[in-house]
């Protein structure tokens, strides 16, 4: 269950006034979540550590831009983390297209084999009941987009499925998550 966002909102407001104690508390609340997400997306520990640092430095610098209208603090921070991680993933992918060979075994293992990536995610994810109830086809497209940073066109190419099918699966998956969320909230 997500923590009450009220405290985090007030902490961000204090961080906007350069309050380092509030920043420290905010870090304690969200660093594990950001690091976990970074590890899942980037797969290389040192990259995940760098991303964590970049995200919280950005939070420090841009706290004054946050407002509750932009969503919960968690959604705001996760959005910063995902945007940065996706930028890194796509930049690595572009680089690998230019250089066929890579001398980084961790990277080589991580980016090209989506099937193994999906298998890894199976192993790494402690599925809660909501996610486990999602049909495999829907869960897969959501994971490829959300964690592996693939666009809809790239997913369609990888899975050799029509773009329309991929879009439908994404939307159906999100709708199911939304329905489950509504049920949980009651």
């Amino acid at each position: 269950m997500p923590a009450d966002p009220t405290i985090a909102v007030h902490l961000i407001q204090k961080v906007a006034n350069q309050d380092r104690d509030a920043f420290s508390q905010l870090y304690d609340r969200f660093s594990s979540l950001v690091f976990t997400l970074a590890m899942r997306m980037l797969k290389v520990r040192s990259d995940a550590e760098d991303l964590l640092q970049e995200v919280f430095v950005q939070v420090w610098r841009q706290a004054q831009n946050y407002s509750t209208e932009r969503g919960s603090p968690e959604a705001w921070i996760v959005n910063i983390a995902r945007s940065r991680a996706i930028d890194k993933i796509r930049s690595i992918r572009r680089m690998e297209k230019s250089f066929v060979l890579t001398d980084d075994p961790a990277r080589a293992e991580s980016s090209d084999n989506v099937e193994s990536s999906a298998a890894e995610s199976e192993a790494r994810m402690a599925m809660n009941s909501a996610l486990a109830n999602l049909p495999e086809t829907q869960r897969k497209v959501l994971e490829l987009a959300y964690f592996d940073g693939l666009t809809q066109t790239e997913i369609a190419n990888r899975l050799a499925e029509p773009l329309g099918t991929v879009k439908t699966r994404m939307r159906s998956g999100i709708q199911r998550l939304r329905d489950m969320r509504g049920t949980q909230a009651v």
């Binding site: 979540l33 994810m125 599925m127 809660n128 909501a130 964690f147």
Partner: peptide, 8 residues
Amino acid sequence: LAVLHRSL
């Protein structure tokens, strides 16, 4: 979509 990263 937060349910995705919270499931990790």
